[in-house]
Amino acid sequence: MSYLLNPQVIIDQIINGLTIGGIYALIALGYTLVYGILFMINFAHGEIFMFGSFGGFAALTYFVNSGFSDTHPGLSIVAAFLAAMVVSAILGALLERIAYRPLRNAPRLAPLISAIGASIFLQNVMMLIIKARMQVYPDIIQEEFLEFGWFSISYFQLFIISGSVLLMVGLYLFIQKTKTGKAMRAVAEDRDAASLMGIDVNRIILITFVIGSALAAAAGVMVGIYYTQIDHMMGFIPGIKAFTAAVLGGIGNVPGAMLGGYFLGLAEAFGVLFMPAEYKDVIAFGLLVLVLIFRPSGILGEVVSERA
């Protein structure tokens, strides 16, 4: 265990943790935003993330084949992100409209089961599209490392860490400053009252799904760039983990989801120092169970209390 005292190992794990934590946080925001308003778990959120990843994949592949990425690598990546976010945003809106809205006043199990159905459906759509074969993200930029004395950080990691922070800051400003953001908060606080105040609740819910989906898509492209291999089942585990992150931070609580994401990322990064890598997933689930038992409202607390 002497390597635990090695600062290089510690810093490496912090960087790894922040990278993956940022990704978890971006996905977790989608869960939290939707939960904050509808009190439902969007079980298909992992699939939206997966579709985003494939959206980015399709765009990047196109740019590579057309030679555009050779001349404009930076622009290609930005465009891929945008493409991914558009794909997921549309999908998220469709999902809300078709699978969830008709069930808004149904018993609580109904939307959850509908979500499971949508999740299976989307997985299989993608499986048919890619013929169940794993796809490899094209590398547009070479993975290089920035050396800082006794530690180093890869471009990808730097890019993911800063990109996720940027998106989260953007989201935070959007929710706090814009009119739509304020309407979102109002709907989360009290849907009926917001409606009486003239807020178009259906529109706000749709926007919430769109925003959450776009953030998940960004995370999907990041995962594609970072891990290079993607397939139709890739949404499941990150989806569950991001949900864990949302619960860790206090579901419905936006800063909580961000904090929860980083917390989980770091916990996993340091967890692998103590146990075999195969058990990495057990850490997340174990944490989830522990948090729900001992602090069911999460680290920062839920924004919305339980309905009677």
């Binding site: 439902m40 778990i41 609580r108 199990l109 959850l112 569950i240 949900f243 864990t244 619960v247 075999p276 195969e278 058990y279 997933d281 057990v282 997340a284 689930f285 174990g286 989830l288 169970v289 729900l292 038992i293 069911p296 339980e306």
Partner: peptide, 26 residues
């Protein structure tokens, strides 16, 4: 876990199912 409300219960049991499978594998 049974003190939890419904949708949390769903996720935790799902996690438990996965933990069992991971343990069987490892």
């Amino acid at each position: 876990v049974l003190r939890m409300r419904g949708d949390y219960l769903a996720i935790v049991t799902l996690g438990f199912g996965e933990i069992i499978r991971i343990l069987l594998n490892n």
